[in-house]
Design a protein around this nucleic acid. Structure first.
Lengths: 220, 220
DNA sequence: CGGCCGTTGATTGGATCCAATCTTACGATA
DNA sequence: TATCGTAAGATTGGATCCAATCAACGGCCG
């Protein structure tokens, strides 16, 4: 007899499946920057036709995770100091706005959840998991901004940033995570100190940008 | 005999052609908010197959110009007070950052060009052209930011904003364009006064957001 | 010996066809 | 009469096939 509740299919369309799979592979570093993404190979690996692959690649292009040239193909977006600077500029603009809008609506539970994420980061060693936790922590602070499009862009940009963070942590070690900034931001947010929280966040992102720039300068 | 110089094809791929055409139609208001976008109809009208239409619709979805539901279809994104608030929040975050980065690199010619755009706005009556000029003026101020991804997002969001501006101007009249803000921004930018220009821009966007919110409130 | 041009293979873009899904209308049944 | 179920049409998602474009290679001519 059939189960009463069948597990819902994890993806509604093949395109979503391909997009999610490729995105995860890129963010987790399994597809290195610069890797050419051949439609045929991906289609064969994922057991779908080339069409959902094409659409997924377009979606990822819109998310700045792949670069595509007409009639040439798609490539995993390169890591570069210049692109990192772009990412930090975008984050600084969007996240500060999101934080200011969100803080007045944050609940005590939100604060507890964010604190738990900070603690989890203390004990996590894997750079990939650290990136995920960092992303979730930031998003937890912005979640009550009530601006879905804004939050979508922030999430997208944090995904891009994830790749740089992984890159950076692998070389510099996890002690560079600036947990004191996270705690200060959370404390200010819980106290409803919008201005102070925003300033901490700005310094946090600027410091990360400077560290990343120095990192790139150090390796040519 | 063939001409020595054939006009280069305006678009390299059919997808680009469809995307540009649909985007223009949406921004110019010829495709009203809520209009269902049937793949077959568009393909027939533009003399292409359904496939480039599908890809173009995905691109436009990433630009927040159409909403798409799997197996249901695409619709021109609705105009709403909530989405307008999203747009203003995003613009406020991104444009302030872009302006700060751009001002130190602006040249005298950039200032002249921006001034010309302000003058052109004074004499333009058509809301659509006004929107174009407004967009070009803002982009002219940010052009030297040297952050291509950031500028791409700003341009995208200004495109979304164009629809609201057209909507607003049609009802409120062109005198609501806040040209004095534009002049003040330009003056501060030319003088290299980053902080002051940024503050004017913030007030400019906040005022526009407030006016738009009042407009929406007034019509239910 | 070197640069230019055509040819060939690989890869993507586009067209057509088929399958899956949603919507609507109609009818059966409580 | 209201509601559920079902069947038909419409529309989108996916697969397969063909055409256009690009890169590499090799021959030809200066």
């Amino acid at each position: 007899m059939a189960r009463l509740l069948d597990a819902p299919p994890r993806w509604r369309t093949a395109t979503e499946y391909v997009e999610a799979t490729l995105k995860a592979a890129i963010l987790e570093g399994r597809l290195a920057a610069g890797t050419p993404l051949r439609q045929d190979d991906i289609a064969r690996d994922l057991q779908v036709s080339r069409m959902p692959v094409r659409e997924a690649l377009r979606q990822l292009e819109a998310q700045a995770l792949v670069d595509s040239v007409p009639h040439k193909g798609a490539v995993v977006t390169d890591i570069s100091a210049s692109d990192a600077a772009d990412s930090f500029a975008i984050r600084r603009g969007l996240e500060v706005v999101a934080l200011r809008l969100s803080i007045p609506n944050l609940t005590a539970e939100d604060g507890v959840a964010a604190a738990a994420l900070i603690d989890a980061m203390e004990e996590e060693a894997d750079p990939g998991q650290l990136g995920q936790l960092n992303r979730r922590f930031h998003m937890a602070l912005y979640a009550r901004a009530g601006r879905p499009r804004l939050l979508g862009l922030v999430d997208r940009e944090l995904a891009v940033f994830d790749r740089y963070l992984r890159f950076f942590l692998a070389a510099q070690g996890r002690e560079r995570m600036a947990q004191q900034d996270h705690r200060a931001m959370l404390a200010a947010a819980r106290a409803g100190e919008v201005q102070q929280a925003a300033e901490v966040l700005e310094r946090h992102i600027d410091a990360a940008a400077a560290a990343m720039a120095g990192f790139f300068a150090g390796r040519g």
